[in-house]
């Protein structure tokens, strides 16, 4: 649109309208800045007291007022990685099914069903995980893992049904809809003429997917995965129910642990000392910064697929 010609006709109504809409657009930036500022101010006591040691200390002791974030960071990172490891292949399988395999009559309904899975609140996943999935994992799956893979330190432990692996699993179920729907959209961007050329030289469907579709969509898929990672890192309710809330670092994925978000959810309202509260807020600030960076990377990677 041509701005010059419009400027001439600008009425006071236009100026007000533009000003108000500008104000609200700018407010997003201010809000963002304010979040960082407020969280930083609130975590100052903790930052002054513990400094960088906050990140490397493994002690989280509210009684002694000793706070270190490492167990929470560790739990957050490990559960998120587990979630991605489980969710990635399944999501890509779903996207392949939806774009290349499903008959037209199934594409719609299954696509909708996967999206509905994304609209279920995380607390429902958490509660379902705690009451339904956790007992099953504890009674059947984890004993099996311990019996057969217990010699690997990662799978050595007691079959509790809660811990990093169960939390990562429920996170995986939660982020599958995101990763698969973004991957599907990226796959749909692959020009059909390119796929036809693959079929044209006599490739099977899988060979076309493997050699043409996936390479073409690679950076979009990476973006989708990082987006899912951003979600997994910040997800609170599902993890809080499943991780066991124990501020320890254990090599075994079956052991209870904690995450940044679970610590926030469980301890925030119980923090009875300013330093305790401040330490929790600092955890929140770190979570915000980590997810911001991760999501910004995801955004930059998927950007070129959204230009159309």
């Amino acid at each position: 649109m041509n701005t010059e010609s419009r400027e001439a006709a600008t009425s006071s109504g236009d100026r007000i309208f533009k000003g108000v809409s500008y104000f609200f657009a700018i407010s997003v930036m201010c809000l963002m800045g304010l979040v960082v500022l407020v969280l930083f101010k609130e975590s100052l006591p903790s930052i002054q007291k513990f400094g960088l040691g906050f990140i490397t200390s493994t002690s989280w002791d509210p009684v002694a007022l000793e706070f270190g974030a490492l167990p929470a960071i560790y739990g957050t990172v490990v559960t998120s990685i587990i979630a991605i490891v489980i969710a990635l292949p399944i999501s890509i399988g779903i996207a392949i099914f939806l774009t290349e395999m499903a008959p037209t009559s199934l594409k719609g309904p299954i696509g909708v069903a996967i999206e509905l899975l994304a609209s279920i609140p995380s607390i429902i996943y958490g509660m379902w995980g705690l009451f339904i999935l956790s007992p099953l994992l504890g009674d059947y799956v984890e004993p099996f893992i311990i019996d057969h893979f217990g010699f690997i330190p990662l799978f050595d432990g007691a079959p509790l049904g809660i811990g990093m692996l169960p939390a990562g699993f429920i996170l995986a179920i939660m982020i599958i809809p995101f990763i698969s729907s973004v991957s599907r959209d990226v796959f749909l961007m692959v020009p059909s003429i390119l796929k036809e050329s693959g079929y044209g030289v006599g490739a099977t469907k899988w060979e076309v997917i493997r050699r043409v579709v996936l390479p073409f969509a690679r950076s979009g898929i990476v973006g989708a995965v990082i987006l899912g990672l951003g979600r997994a890192l910040g997800e609170t309710m599902a993890v809080t129910f499943m991780i066991g809330n124990s501020p320890d670092i254990s090599l075994s994925l079956l052991d209870p642990a904690t995450s940044i978000s679970a610590t926030l959810a469980n301890e925030f309202t119980e923090a009875d000392h300013p330093l305790y509260l401040s330490s929790i807020v600092e955890l929140g600030l770190m979570l915000f910064i980590i997810t911001f960076v991760v999501l910004a990377i995801a955004k930059l990677m998927t950007r070129r697929y959204e230009k159309r």
Binding site: A25, I26, V28, M29, M32, L34, V35, V38, L39, K41, E42, L227, G230, R231, L233, G234, E235, T236, S261, L264, A265, F268, I280, V281, G284, L285, L287, F288, T291, F292, L295, A296, K299
Partner: peptide, 26 residues
């Protein structure tokens, strides 16, 4: 300005909601 707002909004859409809770608390 518009690009920056767009970019930040896209990120905030997926930002951890619990942090917003802490922000409003403070």
């Amino acid at each position: 300005v518009a690009s920056a707002v767009r970019f930040l909004s896209d990120i905030l859409v997926s930002a951890p909601s619990i942090v917003v809770g802490i922000f409003v608390y403070a």
